[in-house]
């Protein structure tokens, strides 16, 4: 429609656009600019070309942080998306499952910091209950300094992440299952399909779009993981849980290397946006599946 007065659409869009430009768009452009400088945050930035990027690719801590993020992502694809899918299959197979759905979703809405502080106690080597329980059931050899041992730290973080977010993916998948026309399900049941067959052959294929979205969310979210790692290990021990975001925050806000940090931020942006675009290209639209 044509607006009743010419200024109206601009008036309607202006506040949103102004706030967005001030807080996000402008800073993004500036970050790209800053990535080409050497800057401590206070004095005048000096232009150094692509030096920061060269440094980033030679920075072992930074390059390895992507490896850690990759491990975390693979682990959470299993512990969050796959477990979420299984839980959704379970709770949608029976009636009266509201209680479980509500319970499994609880951690999603609590601040990650609260959960991280709680888990750092559960896993505390000296007074955490996990080690005490292992002690009492005679599995002493399984005891670990979970977050302080490089062989278990990253995995522990992934498991905690799974504890938090499996319920989230369950809710997404569950909602998808609910939207599958009941006639399809009922007729399959009449044909004698078991709940498991139903899940594998009808339900999951029909929410294919949702699983693709879930994988995208899990991967792009995984590259950006911060709160959990920051509170639980802050990159330690020996940088073995250092992920791109925690390292970025250290470079910028501890070492005050704003220019270098901006370059790291630009790389991270390109990775996230690039992955999102490629993934969307690869996804084939299929009309036979349920849209969310």
């Amino acid at each position: 429609m044509k607006p009743t007065a010419r200024w109206i659409p601009y008036f309607l869009v202006a506040p949103a656009f102004a706030i967005f430009t001030l807080a996000i768009l402008g800073p993004i452009i500036a970050t790209f600019g800053l990535s080409l400088t050497d800057w401590d945050g206070f004095s005048t930035p000096s232009f150094i070309g692509l030096e920061n990027f060269v440094r980033a690719f030679n920075d072992k801590v930074y390059t390895s942080s992507y490896g850690h993020a990759a491990i975390y992502i693979v682990a959470t694809l299993v512990l969050e998306v796959l477990v979420g899918l299984i839980l959704a299959g379970l709770v949608s197979a029976k009636r009266n499952t509201t209680f479980y759905r509500v319970a499994f979703f609880t951690p999603v809405m609590l601040p990650l910091v609260v959960i991280s502080v709680l888990w750092s106690f559960l896993l505390n080597p000296d007074l955490g209950i996990l080690n005490r329980i292992l002690d009492q059931v005679g599995l002493e050899s399984w005891k670990h300094i979970w977050l302080g041992d490089q062989s278990t730290a990253l995995l522990s973080i992934s498991v905690i992440s799974g504890w938090i977010f499996a319920g989230f993916y369950m809710a997404i998948f569950y909602a998808g299952f609910q939207r599958i026309p009941s006639t399809i399900i009922e007729s399959a049941r009449l044909d004698g399909a078991s709940e498991l067959q139903l899940l594998r052959q009808i339900k999951i294929p029909m929410i294919k779009n949702l699983t693709e979205v879930a994988v995208l969310l899990c991967v792009t979210g995984g590259i950006q993981v911060f709160d959990l790692v920051y509170v639980l290990t802050n990159g330690g021990p020996y940088d073995t849980t250092q992920v791109p975001t925690t390292y970025l925050v250290r470079v910028v806000f501890r070492d005050q290397q704003m220019g270098y940090g901006s370059a790291l931020a630009v790389i991270l942006t390109l990775v996230v946006v690039g992955f999102g675009l490629i993934y969307n290209k690869l996804r084939t639209k299929d009309d036979s599946v349920v849209e969310y």
């Binding site: 080597p125 000296d126 300094i145 302080g148 041992d149 021990p237």
Partner: peptide, 20 residues
């Protein structure tokens, strides 16, 4: 202590006061 790199300074102090 094995947990040296996983606990903070004040936790270590607390363990010391507990006679650990």
């Amino acid at each position: 202590n094995e947990s040296v790199n996983s606990i903070a300074d004040n936790e270590a102090a607390s363990l010391f006061f507990q006679g650990k």
